[in-house]
């Protein structure tokens, strides 16, 4: 597959970006939204792996390049696993509980993109406050 113009090169660049954007996001520190997924034993048992995958899929679908999904250890809310903490720069972090695949998609579509809280899934205190 030969590249014949600068535009073709840029197309390949954009396609290849997806291969490396995890690294770029990891290195970048400003204005990144962080989603922390509790992935201790209880979280995994409750389906956190699927939740994490759903978050990543929804981010890709929405084409967001300022969100990184990071797995963390136990956040202490074993009764509401899987748990996801959303930290948007400049905002109070919000902790969501019982995040199944559908809720994960809602976190991205509603909270991250339009700022709507998901009342049924917000836990009272965030990890930082607890």
């Amino acid at each position: 597959m030969a590249i014949k113009s600068l535009d073709e090169l840029k197309k390949i660049r954009d396609a290849s970006k997806k291969k490396v954007d995890l690294r770029e996001k990891g290195e970048s520190t400003d204005n990144m939204i962080e989603l922390l997924v509790g992935m201790a034993t209880c979280g995994i048992a409750a389906g956190a792996r699927e939740t994490m995958k759903a978050l990543n899929d929804a981010i890709e679908e929405a084409g967001l390049d300022n969100v990184k999904v990071i797995q963390v250890g136990c956040m202490g809310y074993c009764h509401s696993e899987p748990t996801v903490q959303a930290s948007i720069p400049g905002k109070e972090p919000i902790l969501f509980g019982n995040v199944d695949v559908d809720t994960a998609k809602n976190i991205i579509d509603k909270y991250i993109i339009s700022g709507e809280l998901l009342d049924d899934h917000v836990l009272n205190r965030t990890f930082r406050k607890a």
Partner: peptide, 22 residues
Amino acid sequence: GFINPEDIEEYIAFEGYEALGK
């Protein structure tokens, strides 16, 4: 330490060969 040196697409992802194109 940032890209896989054996994958040209990763180099292109970080503006590789754009200088030559320009």
